[in-house]
Design a protein around this nucleic acid. Structure first.
Lengths: 269, 269
DNA sequence: CTTTTTAAG
DNA sequence: CTTAGAAAG
């Protein structure tokens, strides 16, 4: 880095499959300083092997093999790693591999606290929705703690909630779908009311999208029938330094390495 | 057919995957009159869809979804179909989809009874070996009945036993492996002592192979480290009419549509 | 090392 | 429609 910190987040939907499909080429082109990953669905050794040399890797796999998993990979030194929300809750298998923090040290000496978050997917009418709300509550608590410390922090990843009508193509058809329920969206309202900033939205302005997830099914991708459910949510201090936010949408269905697209933000630090 | 009846047998190891990998091209080239299939691992509708028009299909799926399954597909009329060994034994899921008979009517009026057999794979030290022996015993009984009727009959398929040292490349290393145990090989001895004929061996003479199965692993195929475990076992009347037996070994690992190769026999009737 | 099924997404 | 694990081969 010069004085621009490039932070990219992406739900890889299985890092093994992602590499088979060309994630390595994307990474070589994007060259982020810090890479926040979700849903790696792989053991620690595999993650290290695939990413290769030159990264400081903090990885939290799920207790359920082949599920979830989050990581922070940094080209810059990492001074601390915290796995889980640190709230003393005894996590079920369904709640592991969903939150990891890494404190990244900038050349000038400042620290940026980065968190990779993979919030539950859920289905209305199943217990998964209650688990999602419970985790949203716990994340909200942790974000309150992080915000109160002041300074530079960014929580990035797959929240599995589209915040506003702008953030989902078919919002009318999904008013009763998990991922766009009023109660879910309310959590994001709280975060942003608390001073956290939705960096991609701030950069893009009041426009539709840019979406970050499209179902593999049918023509969802080709029709851009997507959802913006992946975020970089920064403290106001850090968000003030954002100079660009880009969704690396693949040029075709076949070029995708995941059902999610990466969101890369440049921070002028 | 003219007066030559072409009978081909092949363990397809999943007929859906086999078609993806080019089974249709093999079939169009081989053009058998009667096709005996094993390990179709698919529901009846799928089997009919994949084989297409022009076949009389007798299919016995396994009670265990996605396992085993045998079929006879005939271009000639089929006058009777019998599923299972007909011995009144209440088959377990592990013993279904392993034996089907179809009586094929020749243009001149003669009947050839064809049976497609998929014998259990087994592992020494597990209950699967006992199940294999039990089924070998029951098959032996049914073959005795078929032989006593006289006339033309052929039992073809994957016996999962190599008969003699000629029939397995690394026979020394497999003397204690399921598939080459003395007790298993003894059943084949009994069949051939009873008048049944190993047609491919009779045609090939006392040579190594030709093998019909190679593990997907390592370089087993490229090194021809195979096993001859697929047979056409004919009554002496029918075996006397055999004029050619060919194993359609693929030209490369990538060209295979199954881990087994087809065995095609031409009978002059 | 491959096949299908399963649960999850 | 895809991912990874499971059980079987």
């Amino acid at each position: 880095m010069t004085r621009v910190l490039s932070v990219a987040t992406v739900n890889v939907n299985g890092i093994r499959a992602a590499y088979r499909r060309g994630m390595g080429e994307w990474l070589a082109k994007r060259e982020p300083d810090v890479l926040l990953l979700q849903e790696l669905r792989a053991p620690d050794e595999t993650v290290h092997q695939l990413l290769g040399e030159g990264w400081h890797i903090a990885h939290a796999a799920s207790d359920a093999k082949g599920r979830a998993g989050v990581a922070v990979a940094s080209r810059l030194p990492v001074t601390a790693v915290r796995i889980g929300l640190g709230d003393g809750v005894t996590d079920e298998a369904i709640d592991t591999g969903r939150w990891i923090e890494a404190d990244v040290q900038l050349p000038a000496g400042d620290t940026v606290t980065t968190a990779s978050l993979y919030l539950h997917s859920a289905t209305v009418g199943t217990p998964s929705l209650a688990a999602k709300y419970a985790y949203l509550e716990r994340v909200t608590t942790r974000m309150g703690d992080l915000a109160s410390r002041g300074g530079f922090a960014v929580v990035a990843g797959d929240v599995n909630v589209a915040h506003r009508e702008l953030d989902i193509r078919n919002w009318k058809g999904n008013l009763r779908s998990a991922g766009f329920l009023p109660e879910e969206r309310g959590y994001l309202d709280r975060w942003f009311a608390d001073g956290w900033v939705d960096v991609a939205r701030a950069q893009a302005g009041e426009v539709d999208g840019p979406y970050t997830w499209w179902s593999w099914r049918g023509k969802a991708f080709d029709n851009d029938a997507g959802w913006r459910i992946d975020y970089q949510i920064a403290t106001s201090d850090l968000a003030a330094r954002a100079v660009e936010a880009v969704v690396d949408r693949a040029s075709s269905y076949a070029e995708r390495f995941s059902d999610h697209a990466p969101l890369a933000v440049a921070y002028d630090l």
